[in-house]
Nucleic acid binder design. Structure first.
Lengths: 160, 160
DNA sequence: CCTGATACGTTATACTATAACTCGTTCATC
DNA sequence: GATGAACGAGTTATAGTATAACGTATCAGG
């Protein structure tokens, strides 16, 4: 299966789709996709990669929003809580969700050279782990599966 | 299966075993388990839980070792590289490996109340993920699987 | 209107991590 | 034994990530 993150593709469709889904999803929950939140999502959506909170903050500030960390962290936390973005713990960073609204569980593939980030389905994996955890009586609430390595494009012999 | 991390047990055996394994493992590789490194491992081994680098540093400093972050980070990095400790990304913290020398891949179960941390086998999970990643041409180098939730002891109705 | 809830902005601070340099020890080689 | 490379550990300084706490504006519902 080809991952959009690792292939050239019409990225505008990713962005537009995600924004539209975000709008309706948030509306359906009676919440508000305020300007800062929407803009934060747009910024994350610019690439299939993770972005640090401070990088998002700079961008928000440049657009006239607040200049202090909580501005970014609050917007990002909101997006994460609502399944519109993910927190990538390995990178201490955030990324837009590639399949918002799909109620999926994902594993992340992070390229250590080009920083591309793909999201692959992990429901089966998750179920296995949940079963394993239950054997020791542990109740899983949140699960993160993150792989670091090389994407198809960065495995070529010549490091550009 | 009962996880030692969630059960009363003779912890001295965990500690002694781990230290002995560490000694021989490091020796076999022609490396040195220096006093700071050994002490850092001992500190991590005190509990089945994660510890921040700065907490380890305080302890090392109290024992007469250096007071600056690199002292702790270097010792911890050494332990991690040699499979004697793990880095828990979700917590930005470190934990002694529960099965050093076993050449295993583990998933972590982190109790969000008592901070206990168990290490369950994840070789099967890992293989599944590797297969899935390969489908998109991604070459996994490092994988972290971390679950946050409640350990058996913290699921009781009364939060002490 | 008024009110409570929510969101955004601020200041200040805490926590995590690494770069870069110095010094001393170890050890193989001469 | 002297020499120099490799390593380990200490230092200073700085970079990067995250949250607490408080004030004000906005908005929906009564």
């Amino acid at each position: 299966m080809r991952e959009p993150a690792f292939e050239p593709h019409d990225h505008r469709r990713c962005v537009d789709g995600a924004l539209q889904t975000a709008e309706s999803l948030i509306a359906a929950r009676g919440l508000r996709l305020t300007p800062v939140r929407r803009r934060a999502l747009e910024i994350l959506l610019e690439r299939h990669g993770a972005m640090g909170a401070y990088e998002v903050l700079e961008r928000l500030a440049a657009d006239g929003y607040g200049h202090q960390p909580p501005v970014a962290y609050r917007a990002l936390d909101f997006l994460v809580e609502n399944g519109l973005a993910h927190r990538i713990r390995r990178l201490n960073a955030f990324a837009a969700c590639a399949h918002p609204g799909a109620d999926h569980h994902a594993a992340f593939l992070i390229c250590r050279l080009c920083n591309a980030l793909a999201e692959i389905p992990a429901d089966a994996l998750r179920n296995h782990l949940l079963a394993g955890a239950e054997e020791s009586g542990f109740a899983v609430e949140r699960l993160s599966i993150e792989a670091l390595g090389l994407c198809p494009n960065c495995q070529s012999p010549e490091p550009s």
